[in-house]
Design a binder for these strands. Structure first.
Length: 425
RNA sequence: GGAAAGGUGGCAGAGUGGUUGAAUGCGGCGGUCUCGAAAACCGUUGUUCCGGUUUCCCGGAACCGGGGGUUCGAAUCCCCCCCUUUCCGCCA
């Protein structure tokens, strides 16, 4: 959520920012509602002050035998007027809140202006030693390979749940688990995160807090009976750990990492890139979340991208880093890097991670603050999160890049102690 | 699923329909004392919004789980909802 005060003081900058993000211009509407709001507040508070003043005198009036009938009648009238004005005021506030909740975050000044993914900027790429984009043999894609090696069974996954719910079998299941454990351990041991294992069903307040609701509601599963949402990412429960809290400055930056399955309806995206793992309703992800002081958040973002990259370097999987342009940034993000891994069978890059700085956008929604020692005042923290990483796309790149001409898969060395085997097939 | 109890400030815990933002204790902050520390004593202690001065200083409003209601006036009475705890049942 954007800060209404900031909008009030910088309307033209915000207007331009919304335009850059391909968002509707709601500035004039907000400003006029805000003005109305303040005028109603002034009126109703005047009346309340009067009411309080009179109320304070009533006990004495009663004691001294003063006739209170006239005063009561007058105060009754004032009370009705307050109720009426308060009603109007809350209508206005609801409207403002609704608009703000549907208004996206603004991009940071370092983000390139652009309208679509085509204008994202490649920042750097990393290729393992001896890597070549030319394939020496016919690379089987992950669905063919999964079937051949009995490690992935998309047909039975579909039988059990529906399309987009993968079944990992045999060494495929073990490899998946190994990846998750490896990534968690790596972040814990080398990057200073604390591990969290959060609930994967969350309430509506949590979904609002991180910004999935109201804008993305259609993409979320929902368990109506209990009012709970299966999480689309561990970002939701982990960021909400500190909802409605005031953190100590000395504890920042707080760094959490956690594994969770992720559930996405992916409404309306059938047919496109939907083969095998490329677009699924359930997948596994290790997620990094940070709560930082505003002045540190952009350094923390760079560090987080490096943390995710280190996983890929350790696995020796080719990747590139994209800085998303303003038009491709997600609703809540101020700046975002995507990490894409190479798929030789698809002959393209696949998004395996996304690391974002939300600045105070989520913190304002979720009311996550810290108390600065110097000023003693609470301030909103900046929140960041990034996948470190999502296993499904990573698995595609891994199976394809580690393929042998015989159609076997070599297990990356760093995973050996987790899998207990060195080759599949 | 059945039964009961309860939700008050950072925490613990009082609270009679009327100057109650709210007793008291702990914690925190500042001070006295001390070579220093502890103890003791004194003082202080939330958040948000509006307005003014233009900054944390003054004035005002709101906040005792959430939402309605009664009343001149609600933390206190009534209704609905949410949550927590305990016991019983069921169960990975």
């Amino acid at each position: 959520m954007l800060d209404i005060k900031f909008i009030r003081e910088n309307p033209e900058a915000v207007r331009q920012g919304l335009r850059n993000k391909n968002a509707a211009d709601v500035i004039d509407e907000i400003l006029s509602l805000d003005e109305k709001r303040r005028s109603f507040i002034a009126q109703t508070e005047d009346l309340k002050a009067k009411k309080n003043q009179v109320s304070a005198q009533i006990p004495q009036m009663k004691k001294s035998g003063h006739d209170t009938a006239a005063v009561f009648a007058e105060m009754k009238r004032v009370g009705d007027e307050i109720a009426f004005l308060d009603g109007q005021l809350s209508d206005i506030e609801e409207k403002i809140d609704d608009i703000l909740r549907h208004t996206p975050n603004l991009a940071h000044s370092s983000v390139p202006v652009g309208t679509s993914a085509a204008e994202n900027v490649e920042v750097r790429r990393w290729l393992p030693e001896g890597f070549s984009f030319e394939n020496e043999f016919k690379i089987l894609d992950h669905t063919e390979l999964g079937k051949k090696l009995s490690i992935l069974d998309f047909e039975r996954g579909t039988k059990i749940s529906g399309s987009g719910f993968p079944l990992y079998t045999n060494k495929g299941a073990t490899l998946e688990r190994a990846l998750i454990n490896f990534m968690l351990d790596y972040h814990l041991q080398n990057h200073g995160y604390k591990e969290m294992m959060p609930p994967i069903l969350v309430n509506r307040d949590s979904m609002k807090g991180t910004g999935q609701i109201p804008k993305m509601e259609e993409d979320m599963y929902f368990i109506e009976k209990d009012g709970l949402y299966p999480i689309p990412t561990a970002e939701v429960p982990i960021t909400n750990i500190h909802r409605d809290e005031i953190l100590a400055e000395k504890d920042l930056t707080i760094k959490y990492v956690g594994y969770s399955p992720c559930f996405r309806r992916e409404a309306g995206s059938y047919g496109k890139e939907s083969k095998g793992f490329l677009r699924v309703h359930q997948f596994n992800k290790v997620e990094m979340v940070k709560f930082s002081k505003p002045e540190n958040s952009y350094d923390e973002l760079e560090a987080m991208v490096n943390d995710a990259e280190n996983i890929l370097k350790a696995l020796k999987i080719p990747y590139r880093i994209l800085m998303l342009c303003t038009g491709d940034l997600s609703f809540s993000a101020a700046k975002c890097y995507d990490i894409e891994t190479w798929s030789p069978a698809e002959n393209k890059w696949l998004e395996a991670s996304s690391c974002s700085n939300f600045e105070a956008f989520q913190a304002r929604r979720a009311n996550i603050r810290f108390r600065r020692e110097e000023t003693k005042k609470p301030e909103f923290v900046h929140t960041l999160n990034g996948s470190g990483l999502a296993t499904s796309r990573l698995m595609v790149s891994l199976l394809e890049n580690y393929q042998t001409p015989e159609g076997k898969v070599i297990v990356p060395e760093v995973l050996h102690k987790y899998t207990g085997f060195k080759i599949i097939g």
